[in-house]
């Protein structure tokens, strides 16, 4: 039992150590401004990673989320710019844009899910394919450059990233809400239980009258919708989309899920762990920027080491049981 607990608190312990190191290196680390900055920047990956937790728990994988986010951002911007002449540059246009983003994300997720479940193609192959397709589509839509949001709409949309309530900005609030709902869905609903059952052994799930195809498809649809949500929070930050939007987001999201203790081969997932994983990755990048101990250019290398370390620690925890 001790070992199981150790396994469970591993990521939390790592996060605490990271925060202590950060405080030791830079007194501004725990400042209000810095913390909200890290959280806001982590929110996009975080929202996507919550969805990814369900996909991975059910034994799947989605490599396309980064490109999909870029594509959703592009479609959303084009839609809003198109509406400016008729609807004006107000909140109405922004709301329609948000709906377009959610619908595009849902559609993208459904395409992935149906190709994987109905056409029975490996998740890795399908999403590797759609990853390339979306990346190419956004490059084409932006004609190799940048798609910019109409400046009037940008003004109306701006508060969604920069404002908030009680000094907490909207991206952080949305991330928190998504995480809490995700945690409840994973642990306390039939959907979450079915995801874990399918990831553990698809045959057993099928023989237990679980609608395997529907549940698996739903994980990708859910992830697609959350990509839409993340994009909605992301677009007002820069007000543009280009071929370099969302690059490597999929790897950061997958890494967060794995660091958080969800098993890559499926069968066990925890959303709170994913949140901890997101924070760990976010804080490392932040710490490297704040201190000159290690070059920020080595951020990727340090993240890589953390990912490998996390998996090694998990494996040892398992072997001892």
């Amino acid at each position: 039992m001790k070992n199981i607990n150790l396994h469970a608190i591993g990521p939390v312990a790592a996060l605490v150590v990271l925060i202590l190191v950060g405080v030791g290196l830079n007194e501004n680390f725990l400042s209000y401004a810095n913390i909200t900055n890290v959280l806001a920047r982590s929110a996009f990956i975080g929202i996507i990673a919550v969805g990814m937790t369900f996909v991975i728990t059910a034994g799947g994988l989605d490599l396309s989320v980064g490109s999909m986010a870029a594509f959703v951002a592009g479609v959303m911007i084009i839609a809003m710019n198109y509406l400016v002449p008729t609807m004006g540059a107000g909140m109405g246009t922004v709301l329609v844009g948000m709906l377009v983003a959610l619908a595009t994300g849902l559609f993208g997720g459904a395409v992935n899910g149906l190709l994987i479940t109905r056409a029975r193609i490996e998740a890795f192959i399908v999403t590797l394919g759609t990853m390339g397709i979306y990346r190419s589509l956004i490059t084409w839509l932006a004609d190799g450059g940048t798609l910019s949001l109409d400046s009037g709409v940008r003004e109306a949309y701006r508060p969604v990233y920069y404002d908030g309530i009680l000094g907490i900005t909207w991206p952080i609030i949305v991330f928190a809400v998504v995480a809490i709902l995700g945690e409840i869905a994973m642990r306390h609903t039939a959907f979450g239980r079915h995801c874990a059952a399918i990831g553990s052994n698809e045959q057993v799930a099928r023989y237990s009258a679980v609608d395997v195809i529907r549940v698996k498809t739903m994980t990708y649809v859910l992830l697609g919708i959350l990509v839409g949500v993340a994009t909605i929070m992301y677009v007002p930050r820069l007000g543009s989309a280009s071929a370099s939007t969302g690059v490597l987001w999929e790897l950061e999201a997958i890494a967060s899920v794995i660091i958080g203790g969800t098993m890559l081969k499926g069968g066990f997932g925890r959303v709170w762990g994913t949140v901890v994983g997101v924070l760990i990755l976010g804080l490392i990048g932040n710490l490297l920027n704040l201190t000159d101990l290690v070059s920020p250019y080595l951020n990727g290398a340090i993240q890589g080491i953390i990912i490998i370390l996390a998996v090694v620690l998990q494996r040892e925890g398992k072997a001892e049981r």
């Binding site: 039939a190 239980r193 079915h194 874990a196 059952a197 553990s200 052994n201 045959q203 057993v204 799930a205 099928r206 023989y207 237990s208 009258a209 679980v210 069968g267 066990f268």
Partner: peptide, 21 residues
């Protein structure tokens, strides 16, 4: 082992999987 029970799951989750509704 392959179709009946989730071997790495505890008893409770196995017991209720079929009648989870």
């Amino acid at each position: 082992k392959e179709c009946g029970l989730l071997l790495n799951f505890p008893l409770r989750e196995n017991l209720t999987l079929l009648a989870l509704d």
